[in-house]
Every structure is written in C-alpha cells, then in structure tokens.
Design a protein around this nucleic acid. Structure first.
Lengths: 256, 256
DNA sequence: CGGGATTTTGATATTTTTCAAATATCGTGG
DNA sequence: CCACGATATTTGAAAAATATCAAAATCCCG
C-alpha cells in the first residue's frame, strides 16, 4: 500500500476547488500526493446555481456526482401525480447524486435553495482512476453505503417520532452540520422554505409553523423568519431523545 | 473485456448454492465462466437460522454479506430506549447486510422470521476477487446504490401516504416479490407479525389490525391469520396510486 | 409601493393513537 | 390429543395528534 499524503499536502489541495475529489479518498484510502493531484485534475469545474435552479432532475441520465462548495441544495422525489417528497438537504462539503449509480439515472431532483456553488465529479473519470487505485473503489462503496445509513436514520425519524420530536431532530442536525462550517451551533439560517421542512418531516406546513411557534413560546428557540437561535440547546436535545440524526453525506467523514 | 458466460454455464452455476455470488456480477459485469466459478468457490457456506435467531446484530463487526436462499428475514434498528424500527423484509434471492459497508459495523439487526437458509459471502474475499475484476467493483457500487433507492421509496411511503395506502403498498410489494418466487401474485403468507408490519409502516399494531379488517370488509382481501388472498388486485392497486413500492435488493435485478 | 407568494393563525374535521379488555393462537408438557 | 399459560391479535371507546379549510398577516421582489 502506498504512503498517505502528508497533512501539508492535503491542506494545500483542499484549498483549491479540486479539494472535492481528494476528500473522497484521502487518509483511509492510503493515497499518496500524486494520486491526489491526479484526482484533483479530474474535477471538471465549478458550477454556479441560482436559487430555484436544478442541478439534475429525476429521470436524467447520470454523468456526475456533485459536491456542494457553498450554498445549499434540496433533493426531492416527485410522483406522477405531482406529489413531492423532500429527501434531503445538502450543505457545503456534502455530496449529491449518489442514488443515481444504481441504474445510471437520477432518482430525484436536486435544486438550489440559494445562490450555490458545486463541483462536478464526472463519474466515468472517477471510475477510470479507481481502476488503478483499488482503495479508491473500496472507499467509494463505503461512501455509497453511508447514504443508506443516513436514509435509514430519516426513516426511523418518520416511523418512531411525532411531529415535535421530528422538528427538534431536524434542527439539531442542521445545527450540528452548521457548526462544522461556522463553529456556531446555536444559530441557524434556514435556506429552505417551511414547505420544504414540512415535506422532509412528513408533515403539513401548518403543523411546522405551529411547532416553531410552540418552541418559541416554550423558550427553546427564537424564531425570526428564516433565522433561528437555539436558546436552550439542552432542552432541544431532550426533545430529540437519543435519536440518531439523519444527515447528508460528507466527504470529510472519510478523512481521519 | 472478457466474454460473458453462456446462458447454459450460468444456469448450471445458479442451481448450486454458490449461485448467490455469481448473481452479483454476471451479465452486466461481463464475466466469463471461470470468473463465476472462482466467485462460486468463495461462498463460505449455507447457514440455517431458526425462527427468532439473528444473523447479525446492530453494532456487530462486519464480515459478510448474506443472500437469503429460503425463508425470510426482517432487519430493524433499535434505539437506546429499546424502540424498534423495522427497516425491511428479505425473502429468497434478496440481500442483507449492505448498510454495514460504511463503517464496518452492522447498523441494524437481521432476524429470521421462520426457518431460514442463507448463504454467506465473506466481504474480504469478494474484495480480493474484485481487485482483479474491475467490473465487479462497479457492479457492487450499483448494488449498494440500489439499496438507497429502496430506502427512499420507503421514505416516500412514510412521508406522503396515509395508513391504508401504506398497507396497500406493502401488500402489493409482497405480492410482487412473491410472484417472482412462486408465480402466484394473489396469495401471500405473512411470515412477519402484525407488530413487524406496523413498525415497518410507521403505525401501531391496532391500526394495522383494523386496516386488515377494513380491507376484508371492503372485499379487497380475504384474511385468515397469516394467510392473505388478494381478491381484488385492481382495487388494491388503486389504493396504491402510482406509488413506487419499496422492496429489498435482489441479486437477480442485476442479471440481464 | 404594490402584488404575489409564503407563513401564520384559528376553527373544525379526520386520522391515528392510546388504553382497556376480549378473543384467538401457539407451543409445550402432561 | 388436550389443556394451559404465554403471546399475539382483534375490537371498542375515548383521547390525542395532525390535517384540512379559511382567512389574515407578513414578507419579498421588482
């Protein structure tokens, strides 16, 4: 097995946009710096999405995976009758498009919730490189499997928890993810609509609105439109019980 | 790329227990007969499970994937407070254990619902072989990704459909899977308890019991304990709307 | 500043759960 | 083979949670 890249080498790569690709395979995959540079070269480019624009649509042919660099996405499945189910939200550092690997077609639509930057990782190129780097393939399987785990956590939330708990778990998850980006786990900006939150939680919008009001009255949150301050993280955590928080897949979770 | 195995060669392999492994990678992976035989040799062995026995437990170290040969399994996640969420049911030809690839630890428990036979596929051996057969690795990623798609369908069912529709979707899914094994899509034997069904659907047992009664009164089903006859498949389908049925992953779905 | 979209709020209806009890089923030992 | 106890399932009545419908308030954007 090859020597892993030094911390300095990885840090340097991570500063460029191309840092997306190395994340997929760094330490645990045991790659060296030249491998990383090779992957780095295979990030096609950044793409900018305005709010409401789609990155890919349900049914589209699959070509690439995407890493959110800045901004946020929602992914959702749409039934023939137009019914929408929001499946997840994706923030900086998180990955989208993995459910398309199964049959080379996207199973959901990814839409920008705000001005958003993504990096595109053409899958054909990733595969070509992976042929020479067995550990990358293995790493890849682990990443796809993580998405199953995230989806199962979402399922448990829907199956076992009532409305107030679901919202608490959702907000905790956002706070946690936000904390990794900004070091602030007590304030949130909700880039998604109340309708999106409701769909994600399997509720109607009125219920979500009332739950926000209730949490504010109870002194747990301060809610100002899209801005949330978690006044009592302890009580929010209590509402979550010992639930596993569904999240989105992070590249970083594969870096030691 | 190598020549794919002939139909005859594949048929022969499929008759042995070792047919589990070849399924994972046959036609679309472009393997030849010697590859198949090599995989065949790497099915450790059959395991027999009595009703109630576990194949693996949440938290266990991951070693192998399993294919159900006969009988059935349920998989479920258990919270710290003992709350259980059934995540799926697995019948002959279906795969279990995939969610453990992410961090080498099983994320759920798999328990036999009846006298059940499984084949064990030691993952370390699969990996070793895959190193020489790139298409197998790719195939593997597809399989894992399929599990995401199945989980998302389950999520849509929980998020968008009310109780009666959920049960209808569940029964349709079972009938469909049953049909592939027995050619009979109109009668079912439910190997799982009402409690298991309730948990899977995110309901309580009393609700499920009442729904069965209602469907029977409406002339859609004949319910006799664990045996179900679908008297009016058309009306059951109507209740399902155009929902995608969540299922479990089949090896066969990767055979052309 | 105006107007459409989003969100909130209130009143009511519906669905589902909860609690309690009755009934049925299953496995086991006599 | 039957009885018995444990377990699972069904049924009923009432409570709770959530959805629906309607309208008001607020926000956002040009």
């Amino acid at each position: 097995m090859q020597q892993a890249a030094t911390t300095a080498e990885r840090g340097k790569l991570r500063c460029s946009c191309g840092a997306c690709a190395p994340h997929i395979c760094s330490i645990p995959a045991g790659l060296d710096a030249s491998d990383l540079i090779r992957l780095d070269a295979n990030v096609r480019d950044k793409r900018v999405l305005e709010r409401g624009k789609t990155l890919f649509r349900q049914g589209d042919a699959f070509h690439s995976l995407y890493v959110v660099r800045a901004g946020s996405l929602k992914t959702f499945a749409e039934a023939a009758d137009g019914d929408v189910q929001v499946l997840g939200f994706h923030f900086a550092g998180e990955l989208a498009g993995i459910d398309a690997l199964a049959d080379e077609r996207h199973q959901c639509t990814a839409e920008a919730l705000e001005h958003t930057l993504v990096c595109e990782l053409p899958y054909a190129r990733l595969q070509r490189i992976a042929r020479d780097i067995p550990s990358l393939q293995h790493q890849f399987v682990r990443i796809v499997s993580s998405e199953i785990v995230a989806c199962q956590a979402h399922l448990v939330m829907m199956g076992k928890h009532q409305a107030l708990e679901r919202l608490a778990i959702f907000l905790s998850s956002l706070a946690e993810r936000n904390g990794r980006l900004s070091r602030d786990t007590e304030s949130l900006v909700l880039t998604m609509s109340r309708q999106d939150i409701a769909s994600y939680l399997g509720l109607v919008i009125e219920t979500v609105s009332r739950l926000f009001a209730r949490m504010e009255q109870d002194g747990i949150l301060e809610v100002d439109r899209k801005s949330i301050r978690i006044v009592r993280p302890d009580r929010l955590a209590t509402l979550c019980g010992n639930a596993v928080k569904p999240s989105a897949l992070r590249y970083d979770s594969y870096i030691a």
